[in-house]
Nucleic acid binder design. Structure first.
Length: 126
DNA sequence: GATGTGACTTAGA
DNA sequence: ATCTAAGCCACAT
């Protein structure tokens, strides 16, 4: 079946696992893909992804940075914002809350209804 | 198989 | 806060 190397499939699959309203860093995606130190390659794959099946806009940089999105970083921000993620400038608000955490460990199913609940928190700065 | 590249990350100045 | 340097991985040529 054509292109799509192994790692790229794993990465795309990992990105697809990101639930709406949440985001993951390149490092997290790489970890789920099986290469926790391949954030660089993840970025490269994302650049080629450009597929509607993959919410590449949910993949952001570390520390809450938006990362990149081809020539439309603003579009990425808009998509995230449309899902309930508060984004201000190039930074994500409540980063620790929207950051998706894959499989914590053994039991413990932390499923806490995301609940972004914007509220006036975003009025902080715009 | 080597080289260059990048939607990255961390640390130091 | 901004910039530089180095480290890291997979992919394209």
């Amino acid at each position: 079946m054509v292109a799509a190397t192994r790692f790229s499939v794993l990465v795309l699959n990992a990105v697809r696992r990101i639930p709406p309203g949440r985001v993951a860093t390149y490092g997290d995606v790489a970890a789920v893909a099986g290469r926790p130190r391949a954030w660089r390659a993840v970025g490269n794959i994302m650049r080629e992804c450009q597929q509607a099946d993959v919410p590449c806009h949910r993949v952001v940089a570390s520390g809450g940075g938006l990362g990149g999105y081809g020539d439309n970083p603003a579009l990425k921000r808009a998509l995230l914002r449309a899902e309930g993620v508060i984004v201000v400038g190039r930074r994500i608000r409540q980063w620790s809350l929207v950051r998706w955490v894959p499989a914590p460990s053994g039991r413990v199913r932390r499923n806490r209804t995301v609940a972004p609940a914007v509220s006036q928190e975003e009025r902080r700065r715009a």
